[in-house]
Design a protein around this nucleic acid. Structure first.
Length: 496
RNA sequence: AGAUCUGUAGCUCAAUCGGUAGAGCAGCGGACUCUUAAUCCGUUGGUUGGGGGUUCGAGUCCCCCCAGGUCUACCA
């Protein structure tokens, strides 16, 4: 139905107009509030009725009216503020017949009111505010969803998150937890002397990851810019600058598909630690995740989608080659032979593009056949050099880099490595990427000359890591879709 | 991008084989001074996502389009 002709909205408009004519502004400035609903419950919820009656103070709360039980000369209201719910008792006796009548005629579920009065206990023993004063704080023009089933429609929940938040307390909890996780991360890194920084979101060169970027344009400079796909190259410039320990919590933008695991803009924690190695990052990652789980749950295990996830340390560590050997019938020796790997891929229906190296084939097999089986936290390390253009080679085996990814519940949660500090090696890797790009690899890196210049000044031995916050929040809030942990997930345009 | 499912009143859902579009809640009118989805009586509300087709007749069958969910692909 056309929203402009909806009779429920029309009725509320008429009520607002009637209020104006009575001298009541339906959209006033605020009145002072003394307590939240939770404060009152904490202070007086357990007290006996007699004790409550002795309290001479008046209290003022404000919130949305979400429920109403009308008994003629007395009305019970469910008032919700950010902390929870309190019952308000409105009676003709206390507020006077005129106010009482006005409320009955003009108030709707969804309106926001402030109430002041003394506390009381009802016959059922529930702490309630017996209002002797009420002030409309906002006239709501739209009816809320039904009180029992609430708002279920997933599309409406995402498009109108405000309504989702009004109706579904579980959703509020998820976003409170998300906020708490990010707060704890800041505590964790601050305690370890990491400096929080903000680096550009608009990059002249989209670097630091392999992904297709969003392109935008700066009019005055008349230049195309890319929304960042990763902050990595800027954060490492800061390590060159001597900051030594930095972290950033911010959005990355990747012009890729949307799924339960992917949103075009997503939040990444990246941190860089000079004079540390990726082995130390594994330790730090375990510490961080355990700190989060312990802070949230008071223990290290939790259930995700009916599966028990256990953060108890130490976490499993597997070289990628060993992981592939463990989860397939290939041997570590087979992994060096392109022909064997190609045959294996063909047998398992894995699509091969071009003439990949054994390393690339191993990664393909890993991603297709192994990843999803890594349920408990597992570090996979020693990635092939050719898929890791910014990572330092392993000293014993230059074919692999000192890099790991963390998998939990079959999902990549973190990616980390010893940073490549050798500017000539880095230049060579960029050149290889540029050639891959010319050969049609849309996601290959571009050549970043200033980054090479920075490396030429000297990057101390550094390890760096990125942690996908949305996915970690999914795990820790038992959310099945990334859209459930992003307040306003990306949607197509709504039909008018 | 492909496969598949879904879209009916403000919300949550019905509607048998293709045969008069219905309920609960909300709303509106009324009763009620202790309820917790209050209760009771009465009652309004529909271009069935949009467009086209088949048919005597379409919410239902067919085609196109729009939006969403899930899986796959890309990716973190």
């Amino acid at each position: 139905m056309n929203e402009d002709t909806n009779r429920l909205i029309e009725l509320r408009r008429e009520k607002a107009q009637a209020l104006r004519e009575q001298g009541v502004n339906p959209f006033p400035t605020t009145v002072s509030v003394t307590h939240t609903t939770q404060q009152l419950l904490d202070l007086y919820g357990e007290k006996e009725a007699e004790a409550i009656e002795q309290i001479p103070d008046r209290f003022a709360i404000a919130g949305r009216v979400k429920g109403q039980r009308d008994f003629g000369n007395v009305i019970f209201l469910d008032i919700y503020d950010r902390t929870g719910r309190l019952q308000v008792l409105l009676s003709k006796k206390l507020i006077g017949p005129e106010n009482f009548q006005t409320f009955k005629k003009m108030a709707d579920i969804g309106d926001i009111y402030a109430f002041a009065g003394k506390l009381m206990k009802t016959r059922t023993g529930e702490l309630s505010l017996a209002a002797d004063e009420l002030t409309l704080q906002c006239k709501s023009m739209r009816p809320l969803p039904e009180k029992f089933h609430g708002l279920v429609d997933v599309e409406t929940r995402y498009r109108q998150r405000y309504l989702d938040l009004i109706m579904n307390p579980d959703v509020v909890d998820v976003f409170r937890t998300r906020s708490e996780i990010i707060r704890l991360m800041r505590v964790f890194f601050s305690e370890r002397d990491f400096l929080e920084v903000e680096t550009p979101m608009m990059h002249p060169i989209a670097g630091g990851a392999t992904a297709r970027p969003f392109v935008t344009h700066h009019n005055t400079l008349d230049m195309d810019l890319f929304l960042r796909i990763a902050p990595e190259l800027y954060l490492k410039r800061l390590i060159v600058g001597g900051l030594e320990r930095v972290f950033e919590v911010n959005r990355n933008f990747r012009n890729e598909g949307i799924s339960t695991q992917h949103n075009p803009e997503f939040t990444m924690l990246e941190f860089y630690w000079a004079y540390a190695t990726y082995e130390q990052l594994m330790e730090l990652t375990e510490e961080l995740c355990c700190f989060l789980a312990h802070s949230l749950f008071g223990k290290l295990s939790f259930v995700y989608q009916e599966r028990e996830i256990d953060f108890a340390r130490p976490w499993k560590r597997l070289r990628m080659a060993d992981a592939v050997a463990e989860y397939t019938d290939l041997s570590v020796e087979d992994l060096k032979d392109a022909a064997t790997l190609k045959a294996f891929c063909k047998k398992h229906g894995l699509e091969i593009v071009g003439e990949p190296t054994p390393g690339k084939l191993m990664v393909l097999i890993f991603e297709e056949l192994v990843e999803s089986k890594l349920i408990q936290p597992t570090f996979i390390y020693h990635f092939p050099t050719e898929v890791s253009p910014l990572a330092r080679r392993n000293d014993e085996n230059p074919e692999v880099v000192d890099r790991f990814e963390l998998y939990i519940n079959g999902n990549e949660i973190a990616n980390a490595f010893n940073e490549l500090a050798d500017p000539d090696d880095q230049r060579g890797r960029f050149v290889a990427q540029v050639e891959a790009k010319k050969a049609g690899d849309e996601e290959a890196h571009e050549y970043d000359a200033d980054y090479i210049r920075a490396l030429e000044y000297g990057l101390p031995p550094t390890a760096g890591e990125g942690i996908g916050i949305d996915r970690l929040v999914m795990l820790l809030t038992n959310s099945a879709s990334i859209r459930d942990v992003i307040l306003f997930p990306q949607m197509r345009k709504e039909q008018s």
